[in-house]
Amino acid sequence: MLRDITIGQYYSADSVLHRMDPRTKLLGTMIYLVSLFLFDSAPVYALAAVFLGVVIMLSKVPFSYMVKGLKSILFLLLFTVFMNMLFVKGEVIWSFWKLQVTREGLRKSGFMAARLILLILGSNLMTLTTTPTRLTNAMESVMKPLKLIKVPVHEIAMMMSIALRFIPILLDETDKIMKAQLARGADFESGNLIRKAKSMVPVLVPLFISAFRRANDLAMAMEARCYHGGKGRTQMKPLKYAGRDFAAYAVLLLYLAGVIVIGKFL
């Protein structure tokens, strides 16, 4: 059923990483992603891989679960690897017809693959260990400086969390409307892509109407409960850094220093 889809693919477990402040994880992931682009050298990637491996072990998320996330980028991965392998010029080691594989090409495609895999695993780890609610909270808090240039940070975060709340409800509704239209003889299965897209119109129109109605109701309910934007608002679950977060930042800095040292001097 549609409603069983989990959003943000959170993996429930009790680990240091799950308990960590979402801001630490958000910033940590960013630092990690940046570190992957700093240097093109094998030892740096080795360090990054080892670091990620240790963190995954700490998170108690099964490794098979992590690998599943890679499936979606398999095509992109193979495509970049082949492109790099075939079209980077340099010392030819193997050729067939007009295609040439060069030493530089092999090197480049290997780095590319490693970088992509670590990138996806790293960001997946964050969404697997953080609930969407906490992630939105973290985003609101990390983006706070943007308030100075009049970015409505609180409103954006509120919109995101309401969207998350309504996704299952709207999926359920889509299901109901589709069944209602099927009962009236609608056909969603046959025909080419354009026909299929056209056949979705009788589903989307009622869905949009009902979404607007819900939005109106919800706005009224929020107003009735004194909602008036982010001003003067307190938080029920304020984010608080604990000892483990400072430790995590220290480890991250050490890792970053390690990457720079290895990249520059090895």
């Binding site: 309401i162 109701d217 004194c226």
Partner: peptide
């Protein structure tokens, strides 16, 4: 369905007091 704002029951109950600055 259209008046529950929080994603967890307790968060929804806390929404009003949060707005009031408690």
């Amino acid at each position: 369905d259209n008046q529950i704002i929080g994603q967890i029951v307790e968060e929804d109950v806390g929404f009003g007091p949060e707005n009031m600055g408690v």
